[in-house]
Design a protein around this nucleic acid. Structure first.
Length: 468
DNA sequence: CGCTACTTGGT
DNA sequence: CCAAGTAGC
């Protein structure tokens, strides 16, 4: 029996444009494995919504491999220990995997390399999760970037990435057998099945990712630059969970958008560039996380360590349930609970409300999003919460406090988004849909405001002042 | 990837 | 009184 090559699937749950899989397939008959590792990430084990996605994505990946009669072996435990076992059980000559950039991953990948070497297997690590490796982008001074705009300029200056690799025509399985878990036994689906019924809007898996980007290009790209800010319109790409699990690579996305731009002979240039720059935001978050691994837990700007956060579990609960009395905030948190997703503009508004209006520590919001978002992502989540908190690397020179009424009126002008998620407000006229407390007849069943925004804003400015 | 307060110039 | 523009946080 020829010695196999082990393909360790991680956040690269796709067959196409997968450098690790390609190399493994060329190195020998395949042993494909996914390891569920809840130990190594410490407090950042996959949240509940992520687990729902992972379950479905693994089903799809296993189906894709089954077309080549290649099984997907499922194992559970600390990844380094499990990989060591797999290498010994199979006598593999090589191990292939795609790099990831979580704070614990550098050390993990180092241990795996040592283990593989000791087991007599060549260890190969590949990029592909990002457009640019975090070490590859440097300022003129050789330092990592702290500000997005020059970072993205440096990326654009490098030109387009190499085109994606096509999917395999053939994959060959190792003929030996090793034991694996049954996916159902991992119990990745929520215990309360009613919670995830609204997740049916998603199609996890490589095929779903491909459909998603096609639909996006056809339906939304032509108006992306402005439309992306409108939660009442379906103009965001919704690719984030697919990208997070590597069902589509950022290079595939980049190339698809570039082709659409070329096919439109320049008419889509501004819209397309906007989307490409959003893809670079994702790279930027990982760039920050890689160089500042404390980003998920510690304010980047040191003076924020002394910020007088309020301990208020009741208010946190009100925010989580979407019962703050501010329609755009509540709609966002209810959309999150129902679908595992929140529109990006609304994420900023909802996050600002938790931090600035309720003075609740951004880490509590970060934790909630980690558990409830299907696209929960360690780098994007941390960088974005810090950005809203004003404690991040590229903080605005002023203490930005979103006004939930003005934001609602600006970005959900007809109130369609708010009416969808807060049906109690359905019959309010547009003029007061984002300020229901001004409706003379009152509103049945909708909560009163948890704080007065003007007063809360004043309080937040005082809290900031206390830092200097 | 803002907001408020204030000014100006208009009705 | 309002709309538009802008300084300053």
């Amino acid at each position: 029996m020829p010695t196999p090559a082990v393909m360790w699937f991680r956040q690269d749950l796709r067959l196409a444009d997968n450098a690790a899989l390609k190399a493994a397939a060329e190195a020998g008959p395949l042993v494909c494995v996914y390891v569920l590792d809840d130990a190594t990430p410490g407090g950042w084990a996959w949240g509940a919504a992520s687990r729902w996605w992972l379950h479905n994505s693994l089903v799809r990946l296993a189906e894709g491999l089954a077309r080549f009669n290649v099984p997907l072996v499922l194992r559970r435990g600390p990844a380094d220990k499990v990989i060591a076992e797999i290498l010994h059980e199979t006598g593999a000559a090589s191990l292939h995997f795609t790099r990831d950039y979580a704070p614990w991953s550098g050390a993990l990948e180092q241990r795996v390399k040592t283990i593989a070497t000791e087991a007599g297997a060549a260890c190969h690590r590949y990029g592909g999760f990002l457009l640019h490796e975090p070490e590859a982008i440097r300022t003129g001074q050789g330092q990592p970037y702290k500000v997005f705009t020059p970072f993205s300029r440096a990326c654009f200056a490098l030109g387009d990435p190499r085109p994606p690799r096509p999917a395999h025509k053939n994959l060959k399985a190792w003929e030996g057998r090793i034991k694996g878990d049954k996916l159902e036994d991992w119990r990745l689906l929520p215990r309360r099945p009613d919670w995830s019924t609204g997740f049916a809007i998603w199609t996890p898996g490589e095929q779903g990712a491909r459909q998603r980007i096609e639909t996006f290009i056809d339906d939304a790209l032509s108006d992306y630059a402005e439309g992306r800010d409108r939660p009442d319109l379906a103009r965001t790409s919704r690719l984030s969970p697919h990208l997070h699990w590597g069902e589509i690579s950022p290079v595939q996305c980049w190339t698809a958008i570039r082709s659409a731009m070329a096919a439109a002979h320049g008419r889509l240039d501004r819209q397309g560039e906007k989307f490409l720059s959003e893809l670079l935001w994702r790279d930027f978050s990982y760039h920050l996380l890689h160089h500042w691994p404390d980003l998920p837990s510690t304010a980047f700007q040191e003076k924020f360590a002394a910020f007088p956060w309020r301990h208020d579990p009741k208010a946190l609960r009100v925010w989580q349930r979407g019962e703050t009395g501010y329609p755009i905030v509540d709609a966002g948190l209810r959309e999150l609970w129902a679908t595992g997703y929140m529109h990006n503009r609304v994420r900023m508004i909802a996050a600002s409300f938790l931090i600035k209006d309720l003075l609740i520590d951004w880490r509590q919001g970060e934790t909630w999003f980690w558990d409830t978002l299907v696209d929960a992502d360690i780098a994007n989540n941390a960088a974005s919460w810090q950005w809203v908190a004003g404690s991040g690397a590229d903080a605005a020179p002023y203490f930005r406090i979103f006004n939930p009424v003005l934001q609602g009126e600006k970005f959900d002008p007809e109130g369609d988004y708010v009416r969808k998620w807060c049906p109690e407000l359905r019959d309010l006229p547009n003029a007061v849909i984002h300020r229901p407390w001004e409706h003379e007849a009152g509103v049945k069943g909708y909560p009163a405001r948890i704080v007065d925004h003007a007063a809360a804003r004043h309080r937040a400015l005082l809290a900031l002042k206390s830092l200097s």
